[in-house]
Amino acid sequence: MPLAVELESVSFGYRPGQRVLEGVDLKLGEGEFVAVAGPNGGGKTTLVRILLGLERPSEGRALLYGEPAHRFSRRRTLGYLAQRSELGGDAPATVREVVSAGRLAAGGLIGPLRRRDRELAAEAIARVGLEEYADLPVRTLSGGMQQRAFIAKALAGEPSLLVLDEPTTGVDVESQDSLAALLDGLHSDLGVTIVYVSHEFGAVERFVQRLVLVRRSIVFDGPPSDLPGVWHDPSHVHA
């Protein structure tokens, strides 16, 4: 299986002497749906930032589709939902405006949106089930619907790799389940490689083929069914 992501002996600290990550080896194949979990402060978001080339490892190397992640040439193929994604600014951006922003890199920066870009944005809105809310300001929607709008934004760019960092923060349990089912549909229908990062993985456990637990280094990597029972105890995960 060709590799989408390859981390080799990656260590990282935000200042000298600090080790947020240490000796991380991780290979994610194209088309995989992987959950990355671990305690808060365990290095998940740092791992994601290195994986996307937003930070460079202090040691080791990070590759995206075989290229150094920080110099990756096909960035428009990356979709990213940042931790606690929320709308910048106070202007009441609508769902359609937010999702259309996902066509920015792929559709060209200058001038108005082309018809094809508008169609792809509309398709992404339909895929996450927000058609009837498309022209409403995002802020008037529930937390779960707002996350769907941001996922649609990431999808509008037709990504081959979709990374979601804590997408269920502030989302009720019911919406978490439907979000997980939505991602499963995207994975099976579109073949998108999905990296789902969360401090708790209950919602996606039944959908992912692989679970990676991070606590400074990788402490588990395998099918969720192989996870020792003790890891299902939150006190163990967060210890």
């Binding site: 996307l52 937003l54 960035r75 428009r76 990356l78 979709g79 990213y80 939902l81 940042a82 994604s85 709308l87 910048g88 600014g89 202007a91 951006a93 405006e97 937010v98 922003a101 996902g102 920015l104 890199a105 792929a106 920066l109 941001f150 934004k153 990431a154 760019g157 990374v163």
Partner: peptide, 12 residues
């Protein structure tokens, strides 16, 4: 304005 980090990742 809408999503600076997302735009950065996408190479804007």
């Amino acid at each position: 304005v809408i999503d600076e980090e997302g735009a950065r990742v996408a190479g804007v």
